[in-house]
Design a protein around this nucleic acid. Structure first.
Length: 154
DNA sequence: GCCAACGTTGGC
DNA sequence: GCCAACGTTGGC
């Protein structure tokens, strides 16, 4: 059985349409341990709610799927890169990432206010801990958000 | 753009 | 190991 997750990006940095264009991407640049640990838990085939933060309203805008399980984030080893981490090493990498692929963009994104308005979504990590950029989602929560978007299960 | 909430760093 | 200072995230 696949597990369910939510990943955040700012639309002007990397939007669901950017992911559609690229087909797949590596989720680099995560420098938060909790988010990293969540990516280490991901398995191929897990489904991801794609979320645009820092827009009005912030919203779940589509779906993605995990296509490669965690491996070291290459940007941490590149001294010229903004995500370079001098305290990490190839022998003992600190930061890990996964590859995801585009599944679909929603015709009707599900806004954060609508999510917050639902009592059956009040325990979502998105509601509880707004700062975590890679977070687990319960199957029930995933299905509820899909239904709110007017989408069927992939 | 502001700022509250949160996570991280580093002095002690 | 505590906690003040600092940096970042993201809702509004």
């Amino acid at each position: 059985m696949p597990k369910y997750w939510l990943m955040k990006s700012e639309a002007d940095v990397y939007s669901i349409d950017d992911l559609r264009r690229d087909g797949r991407t590596l989720w680099d640049g995560v420098r938060n341990y909790q988010a990293r640990n969540n990516m280490k838990e991901m398995k191929e085939g897990d489904l991801v709610l794609y979320y645009h933060s820092r827009q009005s309203p912030s919203a779940v805008t589509g779906l993605a799927r995990v296509v490669r399980e965690s491996y070291p984030d290459p940007t941490q080893f590149d001294p010229g890169h903004k995500y370079f981490d001098e305290k990490s090493s190839e022998e003992d990498p600190r930061w890990w990432l996964v590859d995801i692929e585009f599944v679909r963009a929603f015709d009707h994104p599900v806004g954060l206010p609508d999510i917050k308005a639902r009592s059956d979504l009040s325990e979502m990590v998105l509601v509880r801990n707004s700062r975590l950029s890679v977070q687990p989602v319960l199957e029930q929560e995933f299905q509820t958000v899909l239904k709110m978007a007017g989408e069927a299960m992939p």
